Amino acid sequence: MDNQLVKFLRQKDFVLEKRLGQGATGNTVLLFDSVINEYFACKKYEPSQQALATKLFDAFVREIKLLHQVNHPNVVRVFNYYLYPEKHLGYILMEYVKGADVGSHLLFSPEDINQIFEQTVNGFAYLEENGVLHRDIREDNILITEKGVVKIIDFGFGKRANAASDFEKSVSLSWWCDLPAEFKSSIYDFRTEVYFVGKLFEKIISDMKIEVFKHGDLLDSMCKIEPENRISSFAEVRNSVLTADFSGATFGYFEREIYQKFSQKMSEIMISIETSAKYYTDAPSVLNNLEAAYKKVMLEKDVPNSGVVLLCFVKGAMKYRTKTRFSVEDDLRKFIDMFRSVSREKQNIIIANLSNRLDAVERYSDEMDSDIPF
């Protein structure tokens, strides 16, 4: 029957293998599940200062919520959690990342610097796209697996940012580099995250004297003290990375033709984009959006509402022409078929090019009309 309490028959048993680390809000251990022959990292909420146990428990619950809402190859996965609010006790069962922190990995494998930088940017671009601030960017919180995959970990200070007030600086950490200028105004936003990721890689490259890094100018633009002089988002950083070198991806005549026809129609339809709107930059997300949109209009000749297609790329408000429309077959389906058939590298380049087109669209501020009488 509905609304009945579901009780599982037995508790899950794990073997405690070893301790992995100790933090301000608890410690992390390695657990082994013999039933499925798998290892897990388990973070226990146990503040070093017991006087703060009640105050910090909400932050621990917030970390669980954030991790449950994200799913990306470069962000650590959470599998389960156990909370005991009455005791201010809790556990998070997470993916075990077998490897080293970003600095230790690059110390022994400096030739990996470019792919590690690009994966890190991809991970933070995904978090930015989903409105998640990490707020504790340091070497220990960016791990590299033995297979060279970046994993962003430790969202204990993480925060979901939906409104302007969410960007108020509300945590004070012991930072390892010069502070960005916006700290003077008590602001911590996604530009701040861009700064700290840039400074992290700048420090690693400088300390280890790595000479094979190919995004030096981009890194400089990430590390500007003044936010107005800094590249403003991870989406822009990612686009710059993707468009920096086309040598590995050659587009055929028909691929170019399909892209150009689709992107030109997009430019003709789009009028303006609200200033706070973001873009979808993750290729699987874009493809899923497009396929879902096609199913809604596949029996039509033209897409009745162009916003259905535009929202596959833009996450936010916009204004567009209603009389100029996408053709369901010649524009939308052909683009989807082409996008699905090309490599992930080509998909990323297509998204970067479309994002650059969208950047050229006029922006508007969605402010309430002052004539409204309430």
Rank of each mutant, 00 (worst) to 15 (best):
E182K: 09
A163N: 10
F167T: 00
L173Y: 07
S170W: 05
D154V: 03
V149H: 01
P180F: 06
V149T: 01
S174C: 04
A163V: 12
F157C: 12
I153N: 05
V149M: 05
G156I: 02
I152L: 01
S186Q: 14
K184Q: 15
K151I: 06
R160S: 08
D154W: 06
V150I: 13
L173S: 10
F167R: 04
L179D: 09
K184V: 12
A163Q: 13
G158K: 04
I152E: 04
A161F: 04
K147P: 05
W176T: 06
D178A: 14
V171Y: 02
R160T: 02
S165T: 11
S185W: 07
F157P: 06
W176V: 11
C177P: 01
G156N: 00
D154T: 07
E168P: 06
P180L: 07
E146L: 13
E182W: 05
S174K: 11
G148L: 01
K151F: 07
S172D: 14
V150R: 04
L179V: 13
S186K: 11
G156M: 03
D154I: 08
F183T: 07
K147Y: 13
A163Y: 12
R160A: 03
F157Y: 11
D154Q: 10
K184H: 12
R160C: 06
S170A: 14
A181T: 05
L179Q: 13
S165G: 08
G156K: 06
F157D: 00
S174N: 13
S172G: 09
G156R: 04
F157I: 00
K169H: 10
A164K: 15
G158Y: 01
F155A: 00
F183N: 07
V150H: 02
S165K: 10
E168L: 08
S165L: 10
A181K: 09
F155T: 04
A164C: 13
K184Y: 12
F167G: 07
V150C: 09
K184L: 15
G156E: 00
E182N: 11
A164W: 14
V171S: 09
K147A: 14
V150E: 02
P180R: 03
V150N: 02
R160M: 08
K184D: 15
P180A: 01
G148N: 09
K147L: 14
P180W: 04
D166T: 04
A163I: 10
A164Y: 15
L173D: 11
V149Q: 08
K159P: 04
L173N: 12
W175Y: 15
K169Q: 14
W176D: 13
C177H: 14
E168K: 12
K169S: 02
W176Q: 14
G148T: 06
A181L: 09
K169I: 02
L173F: 05
A163C: 09
S174A: 15
K184I: 12
A181I: 01
F183G: 10
S170G: 13
E146S: 09
A163W: 10
S185I: 01
G156P: 07
G158F: 00
K169T: 00
F155Y: 02
K151T: 00
K169Y: 03
S170Y: 03
V149D: 05
F157A: 12
D154N: 10
V150M: 01
G156T: 05
